[in-house]
């Protein structure tokens, strides 16, 4: 079953200068879908356009069959879609506990129970719950960001380069955790620079270049594809203009 579909998306910050020039994508439910591509291909823009942070001027986005093109970003959570930005994805001046209470503020009586459930899932965060989130290590920050996303019980999580700036070990942990969420029925759509690791975990992969779809297919196939291998997996890096 398809959870999230984007069709012919045209989007950009300035009306006449689209960064995405008609990109399509669909993310299967309870699967990991990864978007890769060279710098400037529009990967982050695509995920931001879905999240309502970049205006979409053409095309449509559907979530479980219902149209959600150009949503108000603050209403995405209510639709069951969580978005984890690439950097600055936690509130540094708040404590870890306050970060979680903030996203749980509309949960009413359940809030405390749900917060404790998250602390059970992430014991490392529970130990530091009264510390300022800004004091966390990179990997822990990323887990706090994921915990904040999970707080709203999302059906879809959009992640923008979750492994950026992390040590290889921490990156692997975060990606594996994202993968494990699919077992609970969560759909994951992520942008990654860390192509090899991402392809190993992902089910399906889209390659973008210059705001357009380039190739897509099962992640396994792309991992073994010699051309993709040469361009993205350690072979000569080709930079698209």
């Amino acid at each position: 079953m398809t959870a999230l579909v984007a069709r012919n998306i045209v989007a950009g910050y300035v009306p006449d200068l689209p960064i995405l020039k008609g990109v399509s994508l669909s993310a299967e439910a309870a699967r990991v879908t990864v978007i890769i591509g060279p710098n400037g291909a529009g990967k982050s823009t695509l995920i931001k356009a879905i999240a309502g942070l970049v205006p979409v001027s053409g095309g449509m986005v559907h979530l479980n069959g219902a149209e959600i093109t150009n949503p108000r970003p603050d209403r995405m959570g209510a639709l069951g879609v969580a978005y984890v930005p690439q950097s600055d994805n936690i509130f540094r001046s708040l404590t870890i506990r306050q970060n979680l209470d903030l996203v749980l503020r509309n949960a009413g009586k359940d809030a405390a129970a749900r917060r404790e459930a998250l602390f059970t899932r992430f014991p490392a965060l529970a130990d530091k719950q009264s510390e300022k989130a800004g004091a966390l290590s990179g990997g822990q920050r990323q887990f706090l960001a994921v915990a904040m996303a999970l707080a709203i019980n999302p059906s879809v999580i959009l992640m923008d380069e979750p492994s950026a700036g992390l040590s290889p070990k921490a990156a692997q942990e975060v990606l594996e955790y994202a993968k494990s969420l699919t077992e609970q029925g969560v759909t994951i759509l992520l942008v990654e620079q860390n192509v090899k690791q991402a392809l190993r975990l992902a089910d399906h992969c889209y390659i973008l270049a210059d705001g357009r779809n380039q190739v897509d297919g099962a992640a396994q196939d792309l991992l073994n594809d010699p051309v993709v291998g040469q361009i993205y997996l350690g072979g000569k890096r080709v930079t698209h203009a």
């Binding site: 999240a51 942070l53 108000r72 970003p73 603050d74 209403r75 995405m76 959570g77 209510a78 978005y83 930005p85 600055d88 994805n89 936690i90 509130f91 540094r92 001046s93 708040l94 903030l102 996203v103 509309n106 904040m148 709203i152």
Partner: peptide
């Protein structure tokens, strides 16, 4: 601290 993140955290700016 971060208006964009606040927004994606469900806060109506």
């Amino acid at each position: 601290e971060n208006p964009t993140l606040a927004q994606v955290s469900g806060i109506n700016l």
